[in-house]
Amino acid sequence: MAAAVVIGGSAGALDVLRMIVRELPQSLACPVVIVIHLPPHPSGLAELLGADTSLTVKQVEDKEPIVGGTIYIAPPSYHLLMESRDSFALSVDPPVHFSRPSIDVLFETASDVYRAGLVGVLLSGASEDGAAGLHEIHAAGGTTIVQSPLSAEVAIMPAAALALFEPTYVWSPNEIASGLTQLLSRRSS
């Protein structure tokens, strides 16, 4: 079973993200952590997604303990890092690919913590942020899912990942929503 799921996206990712969140099982045991590029203003993303699921959805605070079955969202204007299996950390380091929060920063630090137990999902977006991070998840033996460029509102982000390596799955939004749920309920071998 997956130990954690990380999801990144930008332009055109919100609808897909909502589909994914709606499908997440009640019995979700692992944390799901999301970076979506946002304008630097307090956003209602946690509330928006919270309305789609009965799982807890929250914006991360510095050194917040990580609890399974919770959906975590990076706060605007901070990088979100995984410090260990027990806690998150935030930083105001300079933007990466013009973005803070950056998907690469989350993916790379999560990969360091969870290695092969990590599932990384990269959605529609108009930036190359996330591609290198997803590549690292792949190299560490984790499972990688890329939204198919054809199905993406903006294909730059998924295409950048596909240019680097061959992910485990290239899926449409529907396939991601149902496939992820299956991955999450699959027993570990």
């Binding site: 930083s91 630090t109 360091d112």
Partner: peptide
């Protein structure tokens, strides 16, 4: 210091 960001830097 928190290790994840220290490592990146």
């Amino acid at each position: 210091y928190a290790t994840a960001s220290l490592k990146r830097r």
